[in-house]
Write a protein that binds this DNA or RNA. Structure first.
Lengths: 147, 147
DNA sequence: ACTCCTCTTTACGTGAACGTCATATTAGCA
DNA sequence: TGCTAATATGACGTTCACGTAAAGAGGAGT
């Protein structure tokens, strides 16, 4: 795939994708000679989608994402090496790394969910107070209910 | 209170607070004559805290926050007018407005929670897959368990 | 070989959200 | 009243995350 299609598929722009490559968020297909077109796989599309998602949902800077996605980057390498090695000990190591990376992301997401849930609770409380006041107003002043 | 204390209490800086005033996020105490020090109340501190919180948690721009916090701004006015009026019909109106504003915020927060929860599910799934593989590796290659 | 669209590289531009002086003024205190 | 720390105002600087324009090259179809 070429850059335009990837941009369309990910809801970004060619500039954005080149920028992500520029800052090291996306690996520049090392085999590509300068001047020739970049080409992408479905894996790249998936990665870009994940970048956008995490960026939007967690509000992370691209540098923070870089950090976090070293996990993903590593996972790709890990999967490859995993296929190639027959040493079960090495396989175990690779799986544990992978698990650690995912755990980091999970913590982040869960933390954020917790904060938002607290906020939701506070808002709901306010909302209920207003509703209660409204209700008491209705019973007080309802037409024909004058004490 | 003066700006330095407010900055400390909210974890921001004086510049930030002045900036928020500049763009209309914070009302400039209308009674203050130009050149004299700004002064703040606890309500201002609370508002700034809420701004920072929503900004960080939801990743909203200050302009979006401006929109969203028209709700809060209005609530303050509403509370004041609510105290002053005796017309129950008007009181009902004010309460309903207030409720609407809170509902908007609730929707936003809940939507974000839902998205994050989906993400959490996906991550958990991945995590479980890795764990399962690890487990199968252990039973296969556990010392002394050679078939 | 030619065409036309997409892409590449380079480089300058932009908006948001402040940071950072410089200079003048104010408020609290001895 | 004088000193000092905190503030006010104005203006320019900065970082991030791209947008945009210019000039040339790639590549698929005819």
């Amino acid at each position: 795939m070429r850059i335009g299609e990837v941009a369309a598929l990910t809801g970004t722009t060619a500039r954005t994708i080149r920028y992500y490559e520029e800052i090291g968020l996306l690996a520049e297909g090392a085999e590509r000679e300068l001047g020739k077109h970049r080409c992408y796989s479905q894996a790249d599309v998936d990665r870009i989608r994940e970048i956008v998602r995490l960026k939007d949902l967690l509000g992370l800077s691209l540098e923070q994402l870089s950090q976090l996605l070293e996990a993903e980057t590593a996972r790709a390498d890990i999967r490859r090496e995993f296929q190639e090695t027959d040493d079960p000990e090495r396989q175990r190591e690779l799986l544990e790394q992978s698990g650690g990376h995912i755990a980091t992301q999970l913590e982040l997401v869960r933390g954020r969910i917790a904060e938002l849930t607290r906020l939701e609770g506070e808002l709901r409380e306010r909302s209920e107070r207003v509703e209660a006041r409204l209700a008491s107003l209705e019973t007080q002043a309802a037409p024909g209910v004058r004490a």
